[in-house]
Nucleic acid binder design. Sequence first.
RNA 1: GGACCCUUAGCUCAGUUGGUUAGAGCGUUUCCUUGACAUGGAAAAGGUCACUGGUUCGAGUCCAGUAGGGUCCACCA
Length: 907
Amino acid sequence: MPAITKSYEPRDVEKKWYAAWRDAGCFAGRVNPAGAAYTIVIPPPNVTGVLTMGHVLNNTIQDILIRRARLEGREALWLPGMDHAGIATQTVVERELRKEKKHRRDLGREKFLERVWSWREEKGGIILQQLQALGASADWNRTQFTMDPHYSRAVLGVFVDLFRKGHIYRGKRMVNWCPASLTALSDEEVIMKPVKSVLYQVRYELVGDHGRFIEVKTTRPETIPGDVAIAVHPDDPRYKQLIGRKVRRPLGPPAEIRIIADSAVDKDFGSGALKITPAHDKVDFEIGQRHKLPPVDVLTADGHLNDLAGPELAGLERFAGRKKAAELLKERGALVKEEGYENNVGYSERADVPIEPRLTWQWWLRYPKVEEAKIAVRDGHIRFHPDRWSKVYLHWLENIQDWCISRQLWWGHRIPVWYARGLDREHLTEADLRDPAKVHVSLAGPADKENWVQEDDVLDTWASSWLWPFATLGWPDRAAMDQAGFEFFYPTTTLVTGPDIIFFWVARMIMAGLEFVRPGEPLERRIPFRHVYFTGIIRDAQGRKMSKSLGNSPDPLDLIAKYGADGLRFGIISIAPQGQDIRFQEERIEGGKNFCNKLWNACRFRQMSGEMADNSSLAMILARIAPPRFDADDHAILDRMLATTREVDRCFEEFEFSAAVQALYGFFWNDFCDWYVEVSKSKLQDPTTKANCLAIQDLVLRQTLLLLHPFTPFITEELWQLLGYGAAGTFLMRDARLESPSQFAHGGLRIDTAAAAVVGQLKAMVSQVRALKAEHGEASSKASVFVVEAGEAHWAVVEANLAKLQRMAGAATITRGQTAPNAPGTVTAFGTWSLVKQMQGDPAAERARLAKEIEAVAKHLAGTQARLANEAFVSKAPPAVLEGAKKQLADLQAKHAELQRLLAAAG
RNA sequence: GGACCCUUAGCUCAGUUGGUUAGAGCGUUUCCUUGACAUGGAAAAGGUCACUGGUUCGAGUCCAGUAGGGUCCACCA
């Protein structure tokens, strides 16, 4: 066996094991009808994506779950893949084209798509390589892409199916239009931002009443040429007599527009009069519909003013047009006032420009299975972690709106609809849509293609990713499903994602699963997953979201180079409590690295301490353990090991990963390294205790590596192999199995918890003695001379642990005797220890120290006495609490008396 | 306007059903290179648990309210 080096160097170890796992096929999810499946589908990163800290957190958690599932003996499948990301990808390729001074229209649809595909081949999907550096144990042979042929068939098949069921329709409606990407967006893709703007107060002159005006307030004067009316509230006394009159439009081609009454107008906002521009505002559009007013669209698709805006404005970009419009109004005396104003403006999430409400023909989806989707979560068939997100989910479903699923892009799934050549698409009715002579909807398309024209639009990316949990498992093709193990792996077990895509993705997947999978079967067989774990959002030290534009996100690959993948994983998990946002601190990643080094060196110590026996199974190690020889420390460390095992079990059940990591950290560092390894040093000197001690170390290290493996896969595999904990040719990640505490008991392990409890007191005593030395200027390394004044029972404990105590307290000798007057001392659970040395300087310092301690004890004592003197406490508190208080009182009284005696003896 | 979350040590955060003297990591101070580890060890300082009131024998924890910070949803020009 090679010797373990002095410090852990992650780089080569990570490369070595990742390749070994991959080559041995350890990542493959296999069907085993006799076993239980554990399935995770990756939230597919965009094909344009690069690894961010958010991905690190998200995918580390998935890897933790999947590795833990393997160790529990489940058939684990982590299914990876990528999203074609319509707008994002098309934008990237268009940007490339722009550098060549070209536009996608110069290439034409077909050539442009070829270009996108070749971009994907060359540069797309880097993120999947990066995930491997993180240690992701996904089944890469199953990698899916939402534009793969079979996946595309699933997407288009679903469109056809929903169309036939009447869930999909085409309609001319107000949509969120992105003037940068030139496409419609769904409501979910629009984010509202408060924007500082100007509120213009504009007056419209009444026709036939020279010098009389009606005033409106608007933030968008450039749309005045699109005004078709002024609306007031029907009950507004200020305007009642003006209803039905006409005013002159102050901008654009001259026109007279009517003053109308509509109760949608808020009397108390602004002037109480509202300009109606149906083409550029959703509310205005609705009012326009009610009053049969035709919309006048004064903008082009890319956000410029068109000819309908009049010659002064035509051709201007919309914001330049706004400025110009204000100037023109001012010149004409129509601008009464302008004031600073802050309002909410919808922005395109992708392009980060203000969207335009725009009237266009689009394809819409009436969501299927909305009610069942609520039931699935409300009744706990799908559990959200943390649970509070279910409220957000349900609220959205309560208020759900039809989904605009068409996009005016080229990169994506082209809608499988063909219109009869020559059909007037601008005036298509619902009846036309359902007439197979006019509109053809199918996967294969019409037989006589020459007589038909295919729809130009593609589907929203989310209208493909909502099928992810089952389309990635071969659905709907039966042969592909069988090959992928659909029946075994679906429903998936856990989805790990961010709460920001609850609406975009999570809710839609639930509805899709319920609608399409195993129709007619019970709900719990159709849902796409049983658990949804929502991660927090990673923020920088100032609490800002990490984003590319701010440049405040560290490159995870740099962090891996610096701290190792395990260090990064351990660090990020340790600061990611369930459901809370995470403030990133690089120091915590460094802490992860340091922990790995600690683990490494503890194993190194084991290797240096004595011969490695056959460690290749739990049974082999247990066979070397001799419980009758156990001392308190042996009982204590095994007790803590089992408690930690149970705690980690609990954490996995509750999805509390950071708590698991903290439990493991505390156990390993404090209980094992700081105490057990240190006491081992004297036990290893003694031939009667050595073998047992080494076996216990093996047992604890083995269990620690098993529990830690999901979090830090590389170093644990390396150490597992170095210490020989698995049979030759096996892997920790694939072949090892977690043993439950009951299996340890089965193997003959009996823990004496009373003995284990003594160790807590021994530790406290050692701390007190060390502090005594430190306070009196004795270096911890100096071998000091102690005299202990103790009763028989207490001294027996000290004597039984003498060698260890000498080492731990840094003592040359520990003898029983009377405490010398004038010697510094401390009152412990096992007698009063005094340090034999020349009292330096003023004995008053020692008296002051004792007085301070006495004061603290007295205060605590008084509190306990008061509690016990309280009639209500004595009669109502549970017996265990009462007993505890009584014992505490006795202990404190004894300690107080002993301290008083020391004080009297001091100087 | 509605919903949810947060406020605990200098900093970032744990604190599971209410129960002795509220914890961790980092940072700070002092000491230590003793044969696993200085990526380390020992010790110490540091908190009226945002505020006010209530329930209770007992509240960081439960309830109500207040203040501050954050997130999501909502068509107010």
